[in-house]
């Protein structure tokens, strides 16, 4: 019985954490990402990559914090399309990056779960630039 209770409470803690990250993330997204990447994460033609490519997000998750934090210039292949552009540094804090990433990776058809500030800090320590 106790075990069941613990499991349940853990689950709901996870879910509360996810919901907090996600709903804060939607505001961060609106204010800092949406102009370029679109309300539905659709991007813009071959100029700005979309967020609808779950496979890309999943395999490149660890590098996304670096791109958001430091900006990014260069080539990417997303949703089968070539991109070669420039994204400015976001000026977001690690917690805001975690919130935005949680929102993006769980919207637009993606379902990758919560991305915590600890994961973001960890990824930021390994940035190449």
């Amino acid at each position: 019985m106790l075990l069941v209770l613990i499991v349940f409470s853990c689950q709901s803690d996870d879910s509360i954490e996810f919901k907090r990250y996600y709903s804060d993330g939607s505001i961060v997204y609106q204010n800092h990402c949406q102009n370029c990447h679109g309300e539905k994460g659709e991007g813009l033609s071959s100029l700005i990559p979309p967020f609808t490519d779950t496979a890309y997000l999943k395999t490149n998750l660890a590098s996304l914090s670096c791109k958001i934090n430091y900006g990014f210039t260069g080539k990417l292949v997303v949703s089968g399309k070539d991109f070669d552009g420039n994204m400015p540094a976001s000026g977001l804090t690690p917690i805001e990056i975690a919130q935005a990433l949680t929102y993006v990776t769980n919207s637009f058809g993606n379902k990758l779960g919560v991305i915590t500030v600890d994961e973001v800090n960890n990824d930021l320590n390994k940035c190449e630039n």
């Binding site: 949406q34 102009n35 370029c36 679109g38 813009l44 100029l47 700005i48 400015p88």
Partner: peptide
């Protein structure tokens, strides 16, 4: 332009 242009051009 990093601000309003992408949404305008969209």
């Amino acid at each position: 332009c990093p601000s309003i242009c992408p949404i305008m051009q969209r």
